[in-house]
Design a protein around this nucleic acid. Structure first.
Lengths: 210, 210
DNA sequence: AACCGTACTGAAACTTGTTCTAGATTAGCG
DNA sequence: CGCTAATCTAGAACAAGTTTCAGTACGGTT
């Protein structure tokens, strides 16, 4: 539960198993990526610097992550898994599903506020990704969906309407982050947007409370 | 109304007035940008090619648009103004405000489907833009907001709740476009997302019909 | 019409993501 | 242990966005 190394491998279903050295390299690279991103954001993650900081040749870096966007999306996968684990430990306290999701997303948002540059790098990479990164972006999307569904605290499987609502919430979440990161929306504004969109959930799931 | 040269200047509130030659240069640049974007999308808009196609030196191009993202966001402003004018001519037919907005956005979506590469270039630039492009991105946002508010067909001024709903709709609109452009969502999926989020409007504006 | 400051041109240079190559290491295997 | 294929390294090379600079053309002023 507290060890994240076990969960980390689960995100990469394909490819041959890596040796210990290779796993260590991969981890060093992701660490360097997050480190550099934590400073200057997207632009500060320069492939040569990542390679040097993780003690790996440039060509090797590109063997592990075929582009800067791939690298940053993988970094986001990594961070999201940490976040998911953290959020699980303290489930939301609100009774209504919509409020629970809003509460959870606001917690995530506060976590991002502590590392705005890292958030910048990851979110920009995510929305800038083209088709060649689709599988990885999809993994991130599934992780996000899982976090939201977790927060809803459903009894059974979600209905199609609920899944649509969750998709829209995800859209709003990403786009609101972008506007905040580029300085066009305040923290308060993002909060309002999240709370607004979360009303959709209570609209589709009219509280089947006992 | 039909001449766009008059409307084009309205989007740039700052800066000294341009001479006729300068206005013509600006227009040639935007045309070349849209042309190239219409082919290969974001990557196909190469600054050297834009400069050559618009018969302008590279340095001059950068004087008019300080970065590729600035250029593409300006291109989006331009296209949005066309779109706004086109949409005004045929207002939505649905009675409910939410359905009117959904109908309008689906029209816009169909227009984008005709030029998917152009859409790719513009939307990617928009979400990739950093703080240095905030004013221009904000202009695009205001244009989009205007289109949505137009579609709602309000009698008076929108309430704060309605403005929040519109913001969330914009978030969903941009993010849904991204997922479609990167091949992670189908056209049908985008339609559902738009219709889902547009319910928020009828939630905040409970049909003050007569 | 001569003059001055600003804008434009053409071309080179610089930056950073990405690719390529030749040689050194490593991992797995008989 | 010795062999072989795959991986890794160091570094050059390439591509496209961006900057810079010396010289030229333009627009307004006197």
């Amino acid at each position: 539960m507290t060890t994240d190394s076990t969960a980390a491998g689960a995100a990469l279903p394909a490819g041959p198993p890596l040796t210990a050295r290779q796993e260590a390299r991969r981890r060093r690279i992701l660490h360097a990526s997050a480190e550099l991103a934590g400073r200057g954001g997207f632009d500060a993650v320069q492939m040569r610097e990542v390679a040097e900081a993780s003690d790996v040749a440039l060509g090797t870096l590109y063997r592990y992550f075929p582009s800067k966007v791939h690298l940053l999306v993988a970094t986001m996968q990594d961070q999201l898994q940490h976040l998911h684990a953290t959020l699980r430990k303290r489930p939301p306290t609100e009774p209504e599903p919509g409020a629970r999701v809003a509460q959870t997303l606001m917690r995530a948002f506060r976590a991002l506020q502590r590392e705005p540059h890292l958030a910048d790098a990851m979110v920009r990479a995510l929305t800038f990704a083209d088709r060649s990164v689709s599988p990885e972006v999809d993994t991130v999307s599934r992780l996000t969906t899982a976090i939201i569904l977790d927060a809803m605290g459903l009894d059974g499987a979600p209905t199609p309407e609920q899944l649509s609502a969750v998709r829209v919430i995800e859209h709003t979440w990403h786009s609101a982050l972008i506007t905040w990161l580029s300085g066009r929306a305040s923290i308060a504004q993002v909060k309002i947007d999240i709370e607004t969109v979360c009303r959709l959930i209570d609209l589709t799931a009219p509280v089947p409370r006992a």
